[in-house]
Write a protein that binds this DNA or RNA. Structure first.
Lengths: 341, 341
DNA sequence: TTGTACGCGTTATCAT
DNA sequence: ATGATAACGCGTACAA
């Protein structure tokens, strides 16, 4: 049974000829240490291939080295991008990522989260929109004393816990792109009510129209829920408007795919008969036909930055630049063109 | 500071008037216990709202309550489906899911995994294809003594560690669907060489053609790597064949989306000029235009079953039925039709 | 600057 | 069937 017995802190102490507390100090970068001692200990650690036992540290410290991803985001691709950013940040560290999906609107959601915090005692959590916009969840983190970072589209709340994108400006720019192409009847598929991102994108859309003195009758606004099917339904409604819109902005890519889907089923050609713009630049955007003009949000970079800040917040608190907003950019593909005369 | 101090096993022991070892026995369902004692302890646990500290258990047991998902799968949607299945399985348990992506072909992959095992000491891992088909990884699990379950398309290796789908039969059926529609020139976009799933799907395709006495010239076979772009490139090659194929089977949905993409760019109408069949029934399949005929693999259910078996394997070893194969089904959508005369 | 002794919450050993 | 006591590996007062 070569049950690879890992060396412990005691082995290192013995080999280095010091006490285990000294080894502990080296591990935790305590200031008061002779360079000589530190070297001896580090050499011993190298020889033995020592790495500290996270479980023992967790027990002693009262918290684990788990970073939780708390989300109720409906977009699979967005979740994967966030996970990728987190994993890049914790690569080669002692931290691990655990995923905690929560059910939006569930009455037990807060209790579930509280149990997660109390039992797992995670090092910290990333709160992803839309749950990141729930004040009760933020309060829970504060009360429990769990580090947290919020990722969202709305600048609201303590900036040191916030990483945001500038959805409003980005959507305004995207809408201006449609206006510049010559569109005047532009429909909007909104995100679900109560989502800060949905509101921000709606505001950006409306701002662009207002600046160009373009009216927005109710018949050109439809409600969606960020899922494909809701985009289909919304598009049918918008395409029934008389006169028909020549362009539609959908508040995320999945719904935009639904809009294209509905247009195709109506026998309309995208972009000749209808231009479509989405938001997120998820994988589907480049893969559908025609390729979707959309807004790319640097969500992976945002998640990575938020995770790094979470980890660093214990070591040093100089990672203030992380809270800068992350700009989105318009990706122009084939789903937008000038309207037919 | 109401820093919710969790009750410990000592509190329970005191309230119940027993020793903490007895409480431990109740927790671990030890056989030798009076019903009376058990009830007393359980009552005390209920009163105090006690739940055992996973970190302390981890330290004492030498392993954590983390279930690792080890994967190098290129499809985001497939990964999400697996995660969902795992999360359903560990819902309301003491287990947590941690995600470990590994880089295929990386020379450090095995070392990285070994470090993960030695440091985190996970309760067990789910090995997802294609990494689940890597014998070295399986050997590592055995050597380290880490529980594991493999999810894949190939029946190979110890069945008690295996959950598989029947890709070969499913693809044969899908190809027969094309043949029944009247297609005789059918192209194949293969998955990456070395993937068991790619081989199984290729074999199913070839079996169907052979049974129908349909030839498969090399010009109708192209290599892909399961990613969208490779589907585009492969389709260009296949569509250059003279005479042109009237149908193409792509070994997964992402590449099938690439095939449709390429066909659209060539000005071909799907399915009038070209029928396309994919595999996986990922989210993109129903969202692209035209909706993709594809094979649905019950991947979420497979992941859930594998996780349950992983957890149960410690309690009882009667979960043998889990290793049954999970049948895939053909989902007929609008991307397939009879060939034009 | 470094070492000693103890605590973290649980499981395991060996009694009784 | 149950209990006293010692691990598990690390952090931290406090002393030296």
């Amino acid at each position: 049974m070569p049950k690879t017995a890992q060396p412990t802190i005691n082995d290192v102490a013995r080999v280095a000829g010091v006490s285990k507390k000294t080894v502990s100090r080296v591990l935790n970068r305590a200031p008061s240490l002779t360079d000589n001692t530190r070297r001896r200990v580090e050499t011993a650690m190298g020889e033995l291939g020592y790495s500290p036992n996270p479980q023992a540290r967790a027990l002693a410290l009262g918290r684990t080295f788990l970073i939780g991803l708390v989300h109720d985001n409906p977009s699979a691709q967005t979740v994967m991008n966030i996970q990728q950013g987190m994993l890049e940040a914790i690569h080669d560290t002692e931290f691990e990522m655990v995923v905690r999906p929560v059910e939006r609107g569930s009455p037990t959601m807060l209790d579930d989260l509280r149990r997660f915090f109390e039992r797992q005692r995670p090092f910290g959590v990333l709160l992803m929109s839309p749950v990141s916009e729930n004040p009760a969840v933020v309060r829970l983190c504060e009360e429990i004393g769990c580090r947290y970072m919020r990722i969202g589209s709305v600048v609201e709340g303590a900036p040191e816990h916030l990483v945001t994108s500038n959805d409003r400006e980005a959507v305004r720019e995207a809408t201006e792109h449609l206006i510049a192409l010559g569109h005047r009847r532009i429909g909007l598929v909104m995100g679900p009510s109560g989502f800060g991102s949905a509101r921000e994108r709606q505001l950006g859309f409306e701002e662009a129209l207002r600046s160009a003195d373009i009216p927005l009758p109710p018949s050109l606004v439809a409600q969606g829920n960020y899922l494909f099917d809701s985009g289909v339904v919304a598009a049918y409604r918008l395409l029934d408007a008389m006169p028909r819109p020549t362009a539609i902005f959908a508040s995320n890519d999945e719904m935009a795919a639904g809009v294209i889907h509905a247009a195709c089923q109506r026998g309309l050609d995208v972009p000749r008969d209808l231009s479509v713009v989405g938001f997120d630049d998820t994988a589907i955007a480049a893969h559908i036909w025609p390729p979707l003009t959309t807004v790319r949000r640097p969500i992976t970079a945002m998640a990575q930055a938020a995770t790094i800040k979470l980890i660093k917040s214990v070591a040093r608190s100089d990672a203030a630049d992380v809270s800068a907003r992350y700009p989105s950019t318009l990706i122009r593909r084939a789903s937008t063109a000038a309207p037919r005369q």
